[in-house]
Design a protein around this nucleic acid. Structure first.
Length: 540
DNA sequence: AACGGCAGCGCC
DNA sequence: AAAGGGCGCTGCCGTT
């Protein structure tokens, strides 16, 4: 199979220019036509921004196998060059290349209107260049910068995985996650009562709110932490906050209805009927994913709250008739990633087992929970409870893994940058931090950043493992199975039921392949827990 | 009326 | 002595 590169530039008028790398640019009336023509060779499509270009192709029923996203790559490169936060758009990259005024990233409209892609550049000094020359020059520049990276092979893998993520995010938004509106409505009605009129509380919520007021003997808004704190104080049960774990310690008749209210109110306002009206259409939930929306490379969402779906709501995620959901979860991903990164023999041996913490228990007095606390404290910077004692065991028994996170923390405390395994770089400390660090609060600021960088190296590497796994999986799914959800270390595929076994096999393959691509030969295994279900709620 | 910080809590 | 990482989203409430 020939795998070349084809650059694509979308003109302001909606026309398209394509240029096979090494060849000549030519107009291609319609991007879909160009994709139909070239895609049989599985080229790597080079374009300014997947969010702008790809949705139209998906609407036309087309998919591409790989791409190079200039926007996301620019973000990776800028961070690696210690310039996080500078505008990442191709226009901005072009302007920097030529010393021109750099357009603001916010000026780029990404709502799917192709016309707007080059508008900001047109308003600025980059206006003179044709879109196809802009794509060509920025692409060449990025390839130079990737080649100049201290580890181009790893960094190139990261660039490819990030770009694959952009394709997958667009495809997931296009396909949507199965979400049965009738099941969701039934679930809400069961928990809250029938859908209320606009601006009203559901019956059960109103009843609980009334019980809270009755318990205090006067009207109290259960949504107002201030009023709650005041009411408890007046009742002789002062509380420092209204967090549920605080309230649970209080002996007062308002506590029970208040806690019940808080739990249900959240479901009502976050994932209730109004939410469904906005985000669920035709039994599909279509969130907006933001690839690399988190500095660690994790995805974020810009709407729909897809990464915070409460477990109880998973009952509404139901496969189509005759189809299944294959729910796959990378178990204990972060400690395994730490073991592989640190090449720590003892930890890596434990990470060859299905239950890593159980395998470590022996080192921690035979207590699995202690092993878990030790590892989590090492990765998060925890110091409460038994953590200090358990961390000293960790330092003794798993010195290389311990040193890796300690070094990351020390670098952070000193204001240095740290990197993931493939070369994602954390942002530099803020200006305020640099001022704070010399003040009386300096020690605290240093510790806070140390915890951030300590966690960054592990979380970012876990994120790139997951991205790589997903990219491999995407290429191995049997048609018409497709990915419908991704949440940090968990992936869901929607598949005709008879193909579920093939999908599961593809998941196992993808996990092993991602581990090999990132870490090469290692005793560490990153096993996937897979459940084939009709409803997401039945996984786990 | 619009905006933004905060509290609180859901997910990993 | 204690001290936990990353997000998004909502309603409240003070500010403009």
């Amino acid at each position: 199979m020939h795998v070349g590169r084809v650059e694509v530039a979308v003109e302001a008028g909606g026309g398209t220019t394509v240029r096979p790398v090494g060849g000549a640019a030519r107009p291609a009336g319609d991007l879909a036509e160009a994709v139909r023509e070239f895609e049989r060779d599985s080229p790597r499509w080079v374009w300014a921004d997947t969010r702008v270009v790809y949705p139209g192709l998906l609407d036309a029923g087309l998919r591409v196998s790989r791409c190079h996203d200039l926007f996301l790559t620019e973000g990776l490169l800028l961070a690696a060059e210690g310039r996080s936060g500078e505008p990442r758009s191709a226009e901005a990259a072009y302007a920097r290349l030529h010393g021109l005024p750099v357009p603001d990233e916010r000026g780029v409209e990404v709502a799917g209107a192709q016309e707007t892609l080059f508008e900001p550049a047109r308003k600025d000094a980059a206006a003179a260049v044709s879109p196809s020359d802009l794509v060509r020059e920025v692409h060449e520049d990025q390839r130079r910068r990737i080649a100049a990276h201290r580890d181009p092979a790893r960094f190139g893998l990261l660039v490819a995985a990030e770009s694959a993520g952009a394709l997958i995010a667009a495809e997931m938004s296009h396909d949507g996650m199965p979400w049965r509106e009738d099941a969701h409505d039934a679930l809400l009605t069961d928990l809250l009562g029938p859908r209320p009129a606009h601006g009203m509380r559901p019956a059960k919520l109103q009843h609980l709110a009334d019980q809270v007021s009755a318990a205090f003997g006067h009207p109290v808004n259960p949504d107002s932490p201030q009023q709650i704190v005041k009411a408890f104080k007046a009742a002789g049960s002062a509380v420092p906050s209204t967090r549920s774990h605080v309230l649970k310690q209080v002996d007062h008749p308002a506590v029970a209805p208040l806690l019940a209210y808080k739990e249900l109110a959240r479901l009502f306002s976050f994932h209730g009927w109004v939410w469904a009206d906005q985000w669920v259409k035709g039994d599909r939930f279509r969130p907006e994913y933001v690839v690399a929306g988190v500095v660690s490379g994790r995805w974020a969402t810009s709407g729909g709250g897809a990464l915070q779906i409460p477990k109880v709501m998973r009952r509404a995620v139901i496969a189509d008739d005759g189809w299944s959901l294959v729910v796959a979860d990378a178990a204990q991903l972060e400690p395994r990633v730490l073991a592989a990164m640190a090449d720590d023999r003892g930890l890596a041996r434990a990470a060859g087992e299905i239950d890593l913490y159980a395998a470590l228990a022996q080192a921690f007095g035979g207590v699995r929970e202690s092993a878990k606390i030790a590892l989590l404290s090492a990765m998060y910077g925890g110091t409460s409870g038994d953590a200090p004692k358990l961390l000293s065991v960790m330092r003794e028994r798993f010195p290389q893994a311990y040193a890796l996170v300690e070094d990351a923390a020390k670098s952070g405390e000193q204001g240095k940058l740290v990197h993931s395994w493939l070369g994602r770089t954390c942002p530099p400390p803020s200006h305020q931090w640099r001022e704070l660090i010399t003040s009386s609060q300096g020690a605290r600021a240093a510790r806070d950043r140390g915890r951030f960088t300590r966690n960054f190296v592990v979380q970012a590497t876990a994120a790139e493992w997951a991205l790589t796994m997903m990219a491999v999986l995407r290429g191995h799914l049997p048609h018409p199975a497709h990915l419908v959800f991704f949440q940090h270390d968990e992936i869901i595929a929607h598949t005709p039921a008879p193909l579920a076994g093939e999908v599961a096999a593809a998941v196992h393959h993808a996990a092993a392949e991602a581990t090999r691509l990132l870490f090469g030969p290692t005793p560490v295994r990153i096993p996937m827990e897979i459940a084939t279900v009709t409803s997401y709620a039945d996984a786990k």
